[in-house]
Design a protein around this nucleic acid. Sequence first.
RNA 1: AGGCACGUAGCUCAGGGGGAGAGCACUUCCCUGACACGGAAGGGGUCGGCGGUUCAAAUCCGCCCGUGCCUACCA
Length: 885
Amino acid sequence: MTELAKVYDPQATEQRWYQFWLERGYFHADERRDGATYAVVIPPPNVTGMLHLGHVLNNTIQDVAVRYRRMRGDNVLWMPGMDHAGIATQNVVEKKLAAEGTDRHELGRDAFVERVWQWKENYGGVILQQLKRLGASCDWQRERFTMDEGLSAAVREVFVRLYEKGLIYRGHRIIHWCVRCHTALSDEEAAVTEGGEKGSLWHIRYPAADGGAGVVVATTRPETMLGDTGVAVHPDDERYRDLLGRSVVLPLLERPIPIITDELVDREFGTGAVKVTPAHDANDFEMGNRHNLPAICIMTTDGVIGEAGGPYAGLDRFAARARIVADLEEQGFLEGIEDHRVPVRRCQRCDTVIEPYLSRQWFVRMEPLAAPAIAAVERGDLLFHPPRWTGVYLHWLNNIRDWCISRQLWWGHRIPVWYCQGCDAENVARDEPERCGVCGGGELLQDPDVLDTWFSSWLWPFSTMGWPEKTPTLEKFYPTDMLATGADIIFFWVARMVMAGCEFMGEVPFRDVYLNSIVRDGKGRKMSKSLGNSPDPIDVMNQYGADALRFTIVSLAPLGQDVRFDADKTEFGRNFANKIWNATRFALMNLEGADLSTWNEASAPLDLDLPSRWILSRLQTVVDETRSAIDEYRFSDAASSIYRFLWGEVCDWYVELIKPALYGDDLRAKTLVGTTLVTVLDRVMRLLHPFMPYLTEEIWQALPMQRSVDSIMIAPYPQAVAAWRDERAEEVVAALTDTVTAVRAIRSEFGIAPREPLTVRIVANGHAERIEELRGFVENLARVSAIEILHGDERPTGEPSAAIAGLGEIFVPLGDSVDRAAVSERMQRERAKIDKELKAVEGKLGRPDFVDKAPADIVEKEREKAAALHERRAVLERHLAALHG
RNA sequence: AGGCACGUAGCUCAGGGGGAGAGCACUUCCCUGACACGGAAGGGGUCGGCGGUUCAAAUCCGCCCGUGCCUACCA
């Protein structure tokens, strides 16, 4: 281990340690263990899924939370698994079949489903392997799949229970229909394109049946007029008063249809008159019901105009639209065309324009389920992070609509309903019934449809733990503690899980919901396949390492904000990893052969040297900051806290400060700083382990110390030790670093070569002893050859100087080679700056309001500031006088 | 249309009523025995605009402009 490479190579370590952790079973949760538990269920990725940066962030956050809790000694369960992803998976396999020149209908249902299972075995779940590469510490022994026997049983159980409660029903309604996937979709799966799409608003005249001018309607989908069975106007609309009770003639088909009045009509929009097409629009369907209008279905499931479309039958919906518009114009019915942004729904899976379609489907009555889910959040049983999502969640639940759960697919959970061929009864059962429960008939036919994929996902927090059986896992780990997911699936998944948890388990499925950032590309665009702007995380890990990617993405993703990510930003994490690696390399090189114990939490290492007391004191602050940041889900704050300490304090200062001791002959001194350095590295590696698991394990294993456990992932998470705090050391080292920085600045600004000897003179403001304490360090770090302490009123003139808080005033005599004009110029610049500041501070102090009303300590601070500025100004004046004199 | 975020250095973003910060980029110097994936020093911002509250506003409030997201029965 002493021959460490100069540059950290992640490839060499990652595989090895992951294997090690797996073999030791450190990811496994044990129901029989006592003590506090911490449980997280993974948002199950699609079986067809490939890892993208959104997954990387989401799973890194879960892994951080879970590894942190594990190190804190909790009994931790991170439940992994996958979703069968009905439409997505069926699409994948269908595409394969198409490439083979066949299709699922030719294959038949059973053979097709068999093919999907085969595909799953051969190609599915790549993403889980990718998550392992990322370092995810899931309990893989428990991996679940939503189509597993156990989870399928849970689905049937839930269906039957809700049916028996009257919460599942079959209804004839307008649903979202994908003409390509040939299935119904839920509201959430048929999202409206952002900002609408370019379209037109056609104004069409429907002449009165009795010969009058009739009415002009405005529509964005003229083809649906073939199914019009009425025209609606607002009851109070004066313009149409004389049309009430009359009829108009539907152009092209010449069908008489009534004028009705309905409050739903917006008088401001279009012409204030709406064509009513009950079979092809959800609002029109409701209106049709209210006014007993017939619903005429004019389209086939392929989106082609059907028989009811008369001369347009056989045309695709968009071709029909064009033809109809042309015909209307030719026949003089078209009154005008406006450009118009049209809200278009598209299939979430295939992007095809959705057709509102009247159809018979299964629904879940949601209101009764929503009530407890609303109450739970209002009671504070469940908290959103950041909290603003609470409103989004509540708004959706308060305006909930019934959930269409049937899908006309083959891949998924078959609806557990058998229709009696004798008496038509619905037989709903957990297992296939032998005979009809109503008439006893033996001829039963199962509903051909399957359930919405989310109908299994909403049970995930408890179905994965064995529900409906009363398992020890459920007993131990339900409810879970945290759910980390994207805000885009609050409705799809989070809210539904809460409802299912309340309904079937009697309590919310998790206490904290962490909504992680959306990862965008460097230009702020959403990562998407079609844009090709999403770097493959595996490539990024190959180039920079898994730890680098984890650390970078967590650092970039503050709670509640989106994150812009470019692959090359990973240099941030890579450089940090390398810095840590080299700090360790430095320790090992200099402590070769030593076997140091580390400082024990119970010991108070007061007889240490100044830098060691200082760094151990600073360590306590980082420990506190890191713990509270993770506890509050401020993962990026935790990461930056560790980063700043390790790089900015340990590497930049501590390592430099102890070099003399380390290189010296004093064995005791050497051991003390060595032990401290190893202590600090040990604690920081443990702090950092949840973020960078591989690197920290590699380094921790290499540290020359004894270990009570064989892996950092089960080592205790550091706790602050009050006895290690040392305020005096912090104050003194602050004076030290200020001094060094000031001297280096003078050196640099006046072009004094790095190796040129330099004397520093210090006017000790009662800090002579402190200066003696720091002398060696300053000489070393600032490359100062001599330090003179000035006593009494002696003041150098014409020399660059700086005031150091807690120490005194330092002066650097310059050699003859230095350009006096440059010195003068710099001093004048500083004086100008001081004058500006003085003006502000004295202006403040000059206002009676400020002195009277501001808190005394603030006023005092301003006075001290003014005094210091004056003093500094006087020094500059003296120097300048000397330079010019 | 309504709601929620956000607008701070060239870029990406922290901070949040009393001294403008980090990383990257940039300039100068340094291959000093952990690290050039490094070290040292430095330049750069009227903290989106306008008002208000306050002794004091980048920070709180209002309006406006810009950006992003979410919701909706915009036919």
